[in-house]
Amino acid sequence: MNQHLNDLQEIRKIMEKSSRFLSLSGLSGVSAGAIALIASAIAWFSRPDKGDYIHQRGVHHMANLYGDYIHFLIKLGVITLVLAIISGLYFTWKKAGGIKEKMWNASSKKLVVNLSIPLLAGGFVVIFLLQNHVFWIIPELMLIFYGLALVNASQNTYRDVFYLGLSELVLGIIALFINGYSLFFWAFGFGVLHIVYGIAMHMKYERKK
């Protein structure tokens, strides 16, 4: 009789293992979060003096002076994204023991596809907004689309990713209603939340035994 129970447990284990990508490392989250925090700090310290400018010319002309700053932020954003992806891949590659087949398999492919769909949609929305000089809503939308992407992809990896996604999503929505703190919300979502969830996942799945 024990044999049948073992069979059921084995079936369950294989189904779980074959549909979820479990080489995702918590340290990937920590490194991506740290990079996001550094980028946020750079963005904060290089911002132009807003107060003086509004006083002199009015809010509507802000985009002119802010043009250089926006260009700088776009470059900073792209570099941050690339570095975060590289560091994330590195720690996941390490956790997979450097084995290519373990890193790029049926479940990780599904993870990438499900993550990419909302993320690419969000990316195009952001590009559209940049072209039309609507900047104020971009950090919030990044959080919202990223949250949706994580929720969507969580079916292909650890359950914790679902809650991380939900947190990013809620944070983005809260940020929509609170003006003037976009960068702080962005830093909290992409920096602090990544680090907190990354450490939690690392302790839970990688430190055991």
Binding site: E10, I11, R12, I14, M15, S18, S19, A106
Partner: peptide, 11 residues
Amino acid sequence: RLGIMSALMVN
């Protein structure tokens, strides 16, 4: 065989 079927059921 049980393992093969289990994996193919969810993929």
